[in-house]
Amino acid sequence: MTASQDNVSIVTGKAGTRPVAATPGAIASLAVLALLVACPFFLKNFHIFQLNLMLVYAIAIMGLNLLTGFNGQFSLGHGAFYAIGAYTTAILMDQYDIAYFWTLPVAGIVCFVAGFLFGLPALRLENIYLALATFALAVATPQMLKLSVLEHWTGGVQGIVIFKPDAPFGLPLNQDQWLYFFTLAVGLLLYWAARNLIRSRAGRALMAIRDNPLAARSMGINVSLYKALAFGVSAFFTGIAGALAAIVIQFVAPDSFTLVLSVALLVGLVVGGVGWLPGAVVGGAFIVFVPNIAEEISKGLSGAMYGVILILLIYLMPTGAGGLIRTVTDRLRRR
């Protein structure tokens, strides 16, 4: 089930051999996009659902990538923002009957604020200390969600069940197809936003901070502000992913947002390629499909199989899919 993943490398390979060399990257992206758009018309609903989850995780990883890949801050706690986004949507839909698409911006903004506020104290922490702080955030999330004081809104340990929306305007799509395209559209919009952000002045400032904070400071960049903003923006993306996840899965509960989720996002980020935005799709595919493959190989040892596959992947591409593609295209170009 690594269709999209294979596709990336195959297409890139072909494009690279042609002397045209116009923009192999663009051709590859278009091919992947075409494939993503076409998929729902050939697959069973269940597979559409899986691909949908893949896209959701991809959006979350994209958010994490903005923080880690482009600003050099490390987070083991992005599951927390994912959870906040999911709960925002679920509570708005469940208690206030707000339409699902309006909940996304709200979830994003709530997460932006949460991320920014978390980013402020986290500024003073570096490397391992930041890792611990975010780790703590991930561990604390399910416990906060279970809190009896908040039970009225969060449904406590029982979680919240929400309804799945139908396709609007009488489109001839079933619920899964519609949601898939909805997620895809949101994902593309966010991808476009992320790309522009990175290429902007602010994006260059973020990267300057990553590469050398002291030099960046001496160039007049407000390091603290940018770092906190990076946290906020990153949380914004991840929060929207969480909101989409709530709609797609139709259920939120504290047990959906444990440390395992944060770790999975980190693994997806590294497998996809740190600092390479499209890698998010590869990372998302990894999160959704690799555990299933591991389970196919051995039920009792699925955890071990997962670990072995992960190690092999890192051997194969120590800098993730992004790094692999970069190496391959560089070689082809030099030829």
Binding site: L53, G159, I249, F251, D255, T258
Partner: peptide, 8 residues
């Protein structure tokens, strides 16, 4: 034991 995975 992860609800999203159960749904899947």
């Amino acid at each position: 034991y992860s609800p999203p995975k159960t749904v899947e």
